[in-house]
Each structure stands twice: as structure tokens, then as C-alpha cells.
Design a protein around this nucleic acid. Structure first.
Lengths: 161, 161
DNA sequence: TTAGGACCTCGACTACGGTTGAGGTCAAGG
DNA sequence: CCTTGACCTCAACCGTAGTCGAGGTCCTAA
């Protein structure tokens, strides 16, 4: 049989992988990007302290909310002594995650409203349709946009016939 | 001065780029991936029929809703004769886009509910926290999860002191 | 005829979140 | 001692949606 218990409280990477439900390659990836860390044995193998489990729970929960690893890392780095998030830390940080989630939901709802306005008209115009022209690009250079309109409607009529 | 009008109704790629607000490189990219097409001059330059303008409007509008190019292409390919979407086509397809949008919003709202439940508890447990354990992974192999729980709480208590 | 802007292809590069494979080492049971 | 599974590093690759540059060609006005 292979090795089972390296020391009493340190975890080998395979054990951490199994307990956290995270692939070994992802764990190495997280370490490379400064999200977790490990001690090393004399033979250069990683040994994780148990609080890394909680750190990974934090990472994966945040990821599910849609937070990038860079932002997760920034949140972790903001904690004193590079500590693993405590309950109080989590409450503070997750309030921020919630605000991001709210913003994304609001964005999508706004988009839905625009789409609803666009479904019936079918113009798909870059100059008149809000959905297609967020920053009011185009629309300031003489006949260009007008011709676009005319062309789009021509195409529409032609293919709809 | 450079060339201005290749034929009466065909557009050079630079003209299409300007009129559609899409970069030349993106237009070539769309062609490579089968979203648009062009005729060629004797000198191998692209010449676009005007209905490509509408096709691009369709692509960009769909993208804004968050649809991938692959899905946009599938929608275009589903039309008879590889035609550019008509008003009726757009109404049908955009209803589908709206359903996707609704699903994404619902997903995020569900996530928000889970997050709210998780903010106060702070457990971040893979076994008990819904947010962290969507498919109820883990939780079926003897002492593992129990130890995880104990460990997580230990880490929590230790760092929270 | 020539200048030069617009166009062509092809390959490399960006960010993100990893996975996969090659080639080599560690560690523990038998 | 030896086998074998777990581990190590490094580099290349996946998909998405393009951008950028090199090196070369087209085409039109002057």
C-alpha cells in the first residue's frame, strides 16, 4: 500500500485533494498563484496544515459566487498575518461578494429590459436600438448611419419576403 | 487617396468595419468561424454583400446578451438557406436568448439566497453548507467529513481568538 | 508608373482557470 | 532491498474571443 499518514496533522497533497474535492493540479495551481501555501518534507513533497482546508473552502465558495482568483487572492492578502479567514473575516468579505452578485443581477435585469424592447421591433439597428448601441457609438458622421439604417431595412425586407 | 467604392453595392472589409463598429480583425475572425462570409475579388480581397451588416448586428446583439459565438453560429445555421435573420427569425431566436437570460438571472438569485444563508454561519463547510456542496459531494466515506468539520472549526476557533 | 493606404495570410500572443504528459524522485509495505 | 503508488517540476495544451505584427500584395489617384 502507499503512504497514508505523513505525521499526525499535516496533509499530503493527495489527501488534501480528496478531502477538499479539489484536483491535485488545481491545488498546485493555487499555490503557484499565492492562494495557498505548504511546508515541504526533506524530500520536497508538500505538507499542508489543516487550516488550508478552510482556506480552500473560502476559495471555492468565492469562486462559486463568480469572484476571480485574483480578487480572491486580494481578499486573502488583505487579512493580517496572511491568516486563513475567520468567521468574522468571512462575514466582512462575503458582504462584498454579495454586493458584486447584486450588481451582476441588476446588470442582467437591465439587459433583459433592453432585450424585451428589442424583440418586437427587430430592427437590430446600431443607431436606434439601445441594445445594440450602448455608448451611442456611430451616429455622428453624416450619411453613414442613415445608409446603415436603409441597408439594414432593405436586407430585412428582402429576406423577409 | 486610397480606394473608396469597390463596385456599387459590395463593401470592402474596412468599410464594413467602420459601418458596423466591428474591428477588421474581428470580422476576419467571424469569417474563420463561419459566422459571416464574403465574396472575393480577382485580387483575393473580401467583398461583403450588404445584408452582412444585419448579420453582424445580430451577432453583436446576441453577444451582448451573453450568448457565445458557437451558439450564435448554431442559431444562424438553423435558418434556411444560410440566410441572414429576418424580423421573424429574430423574434424567434431572441425569445430563446431571453429564456437563457432568465435562467442566468434565476441562477444568480438562487446563489444569492445561498450566500445569504452562509454569511452568518461562516462555516464554509463542504458537508453542511449548501453553497459549498452543490451536488452533495463528499459526505459518504466514514470519518472523513466528520474530521473535516472538526478541523475547520478548530481552524476557525484558533484564528478567531 | 509609382506611391501608399488598404488589403492578404499566418503565427504568436493576451487573460482565465486550470489539465495533461514527460521524465524523474520519494516513501513505505512486503 | 525492491516495487509501486504518490509525489515532484516544467512545458505544452484546452477553450473563448479576439489582437498584433511580419512579410507580402492589391489597387487607385496623381
Amino acid at each position: 500500500m502507499p503512504s497514508v499518514d505523513p505525521g499526525r496533522s499535516l496533509l499530503a497533497i493527495g489527501q488534501l485533494s480528496e478531502r477538499s474535492g479539489t484536483s491535485v493540479s488545481a491545488l498546485r495551481f493555487y499555490e503557484k498563484h499565492g492562494l495557498i501555501s505548504a511546508e515541504r518534507t526533506a524530500g520536497n513533497q508538500r505538507r499542508y496544515r489543516r487550516d488550508v482546508l478552510r482556506r480552500i473552502a473560502f476559495i471555492r465558495t468565492s469562486q462559486r459566487v463568480g469572484i476571480s482568483l485574483a480578487d480572491i487572492r486580494a481578499a486573502l492578502d488583505s487579512l493580517p498575518d496572511a491568516r486563513t479567514p475567520t468567521r468574522a473575516d468571512w462575514m466582512g468579505i462575503s458582504a462584498g461578494w454579495r454586493a458584486e452578485l447584486d450588481a451582476r443581477i441588476a446588470d442582467l435585469q437591465h439587459l433583459r429590459t433592453e432585450l424585451d424592447g428589442c424583440i418586437g421591433c427587430g430592427c437590430l439597428s446600431l443607431t436606434t436600438c439601445a441594445l445594440n448601441n450602448p455608448g451611442d457609438r456611430l451616429g455622428d458622421e453624416g450619411a453613414g448611419p442613415v445608409r446603415w439604417e436603409a441597408e439594414a431595412n432593405q436586407a430585412l425586407d428582402a429576406s423577409a419576403g
